[in-house]
């Protein structure tokens, strides 16, 4: 009997199920991502954005309280802003079901769209921790020899990147919705803002799904972190650079931009055209301001190119799935 052989005992316990094993991989992946210092900064920034959103929603709620400090403070500002605030107050008081829905919808569109940029950065930082390093360290062999299958492995990695995007994107917006309504003056804000929340969920979850698959695909392209991160940056930044070029050359080129395609999906999901119209009709002064904005971007806002965007995204997702199927193997 060897010298060390004093501790071996057979294990008599009950094995946990496959969902537990998948969760273990996803949790480990998320932990590895958050061990990167810059990732923690990005997540913090996203939650700072959520805090900002809560503050805006709190201000909005305070407009319904005539003698609130916010109203008094706005009264001391320039008359134009004060007029907008009065219009908003009246609108909120008289038609809360429409005003809350519209205001929240516009705010959520704004915040959700802005958080996409941070999410793209987060994905760039996370890509090496998804599949790339498993390929370079042969960890893929370790996973394949354990009680998990190829599908379980991919599903877990998908959950990792999806979980990360919950931290940087969906989480901040949803928490802002909840806390903002909690701080509002009436409980009916929860009910009236449900459509806006649904828009956020529909847009963010579908986009997160797409981004997760793309991130996995790019992560599986190579066993070198530098290559996969560069590829993601090229897809993101070069795609964005193509949009202004496409306006003067071939319009379809803009659908090579992932961010542009997601923007089109967002415009489709949030139905901003209707909201802008309602806001203009109810607060004339705000309407003038928005009209200026609409003059510049009216076509894009009112006629999102969802079909082209879906095709562009579909092609990228298909390519990604092909890469995953070909590259993610123990050998």
């Amino acid at each position: 009997m060897p010298l060390h052989d004093v501790h071996y005992q057979h294990w008599e316990g009950q094995h946990l199920g496959i969902w537990h094993r998948r969760a273990v991989i996803a949790k480990q992946g998320l932990k590895a991502c958050l061990q990167v210092k810059w990732m923690r900064y990005i997540v913090t920034l996203c939650w700072a954005g959520a805090l900002l959103q809560v503050i805006v929603l709190f201000f909005l709620g305070q407009l319904l309280v005539p003698d609130s400090l916010i109203v008094q403070w706005l009264g001391n500002l320039n008359p134009r802003l004060q007029n907008i605030a009065r219009g908003l107050m009246t609108w909120l008081a008289e038609h809360p079901e429409v005003s809350v829905r519209t205001t929240y919808n516009l705010l959520f569109y704004y915040f959700t769209s802005n958080l996409v940029t941070f999410t793209f950065i987060a994905i760039a930082l996370a890509i090496p921790h998804l599949i790339t390093r498993d390929l370079s360290s042969n960890a893929i062999v370790v996973y394949a020899s354990k009680a998990i299958g190829w599908f379980d492995y991919l599903l877990s990695k998908l959950a990792t990147i999806f979980g990360l995007m919950i931290l940087t994107w969906l989480g901040p917006v949803c928490v802002a919705w909840f806390v903002g309504n909690l701080l509002s003056t009436h409980w009916h804000f929860f009910w009236h803002s449900r459509v806006a929340l649904f828009h956020v969920l529909a847009y963010a979850i579908s986009s997160m799904m797409v981004l997760s698959i793309l991130a996995l695909g790019i992560s599986a392209v190579s066993s070198k972190a530098r290559t996969t991160v560069s590829l993601w940056m090229v897809l993101w930044l070069l795609g964005n650079a193509l949009v202004p070029i496409a306006l003067q050359t071939k319009p379809w080129l803009k659908h090579l931009s992932l961010e542009h395609n997601l923007q089109q999906i967002a415009l489709t999901v949030f139905h901003l055209k209707e909201d802008f119209q309602i806001a203009q009709n109810n607060i004339p002064l705000l309407g003038q301001l928005l009209r200026g904005l609409r003059d510049q971007r009216s076509f894009a806002l009112e006629n999102p190119e969802s079909a082209g965007a879906l095709i562009g995204i579909g092609v990228l997702v298909a390519l990604s799935l092909i890469v995953i199927a070909r590259k993610v193997k123990p050998e």
């Binding site: 946990l16 094993r21 480990q28 370790v142 996973y143």
Partner: peptide, 13 residues
């Protein structure tokens, strides 16, 4: 520990 969990053992075990 991670390898044991991948085979279905609870974390403590």
């Amino acid at each position: 520990t991670y390898c044991a969990q991948l085979c279905g053992l609870p974390f403590q075990a």
